[in-house]
């Protein structure tokens, strides 16, 4: 896999407090990547070291395979969680300024900002002062400013905070469009539903340490508790007999024409054994492994700080 940005064994201290302990992260190019962790886990510090805002005390950061020496503001777009604007400045003036300090000249900045102002329906705000905008409007403006210069790598720290559901959907769609256009997106959030929806790969950190890394689907599979969801027609008694000692019914209920059951497999057996024992005794309608949600995994892991890898 091609990694656009890699952090290897990053250590960062604030005084005597170790904020990051041997944290590694590898962000594949062209994907939406989730950086997860509870409050205070060190996500923001990790992002700051990855973007060269603060230097790591130990460790290496590679950008496209080469050591990252300085912040590439023209290629990076960073929307920090704690974000603000100059309140007294006019919207257009401010957007231009923030694009210019990323390295665009004024004409270029204007040409790139305009489509975003149209897409996000903000044209009428151009000459307003920032302090006249609502919180949500400011968030939209900040998003437009972050993406306007077509960064190759976009780092979004809680991009949906402060948005209503309609705007959340709009921004989500724009993020997906950007991914389709080839932008790599690092997405830091607590919102696990959006992680499942958007991210292909994640890294979960807690208390400054790597907890979990890998692709979302593999992680969910690996955290499977061997629960299977089965729909069948036939006798419940026959179903229960077929399970034998290796399986256990977790939940079972009947509908008008069939029965739904959740079955827990004991150690050493899986879907193959379950299927072969059932198929002779009941008429199967559907059979699938019940995977835990990212939310379940997150809650499950945060209590246990030891490292696991997939």
């Amino acid at each position: 896999m091609n990694y656009i940005l890699e952090g290897k064994n990053i250590n960062k201290y604030y005084g005597n407090f170790k904020v990051l302990n041997e944290v590694s992260i590898a962000i594949p190019e062209g994907q939406i990547f989730g950086l997860l962790g509870p409050n205070g886990a060190g996500k923001t510090t990790l992002i700051r070291t990855l973007t060269q805002i603060t230097a790591p005390d130990l460790g290496e950061i590679l950008y496209k395979g080469h050591p990252l020496k300085s912040f590439k503001s023209s290629e990076f777009g960073y929307l920090p969680e704690e974000r603000g604007l100059y309140r007294k400045m006019k919207v257009g003036e401010q957007a231009l300024y923030l694009c210019q300090i990323k390295g665009l000249d004024k004409k270029d900045a204007l040409a790139k900002l305009k489509p975003w102002f149209e897409k996000l329906e903000m044209e009428s705000w151009w000459n307003k002062k920032v302090e006249e905008l609502s919180k949500g409007m400011q968030q939209k403006l900040q998003f437009a400013i972050t993406v306007a210069h077509n960064p190759k790598l976009l780092i979004l720290d809680e991009p949906f905070s402060g948005f209503d559901p309609v705007n959340t959907e709009t921004i989500k769609n724009h993020i997906l469009d950007l991914k389709d256009a080839g932008t790599t997106i690092v997405f830091s959030t607590h919102n696990m539903a959006s992680v499942e929806e958007l991210c292909q790969n994640i890294t979960l950190i807690n208390r400054g340490e790597n907890i979990l890394s890998g692709s979302v689907s593999e992680i969910r599979k690996s955290f499977s508790k061997s629960l299977f969801q089965i729909q069948f027609k036939g006798s419940k008694v026959a179903f229960a007999n077929a399970l034998g000692f290796q399986f256990e019914i977790d939940e079972i209920f009947e509908t008008s024409d069939h029965t739904n059951a959740t079955v827990l497999a004991h150690q050493g057996v899986g879907s193959k054994e379950l299927l072969s024992s059932l198929i002779q005794h009941v008429e199967l309608i559907s059979f699938q492994e019940k995977l835990p949600s990212m939310n379940d995994i997150f809650i499950d892991l945060i209590g246990r700080p030891q490292s696991e890898s997939v």
């Binding site: 805002i53 920090p80 974000r83 604007l85 400013i145």
Partner: peptide, 9 residues
């Protein structure tokens, strides 16, 4: 809170 936006550039 514009400071972090600024120092990312």
């Amino acid at each position: 809170r514009i400071i972090e936006v600024m120092i990312s550039s």
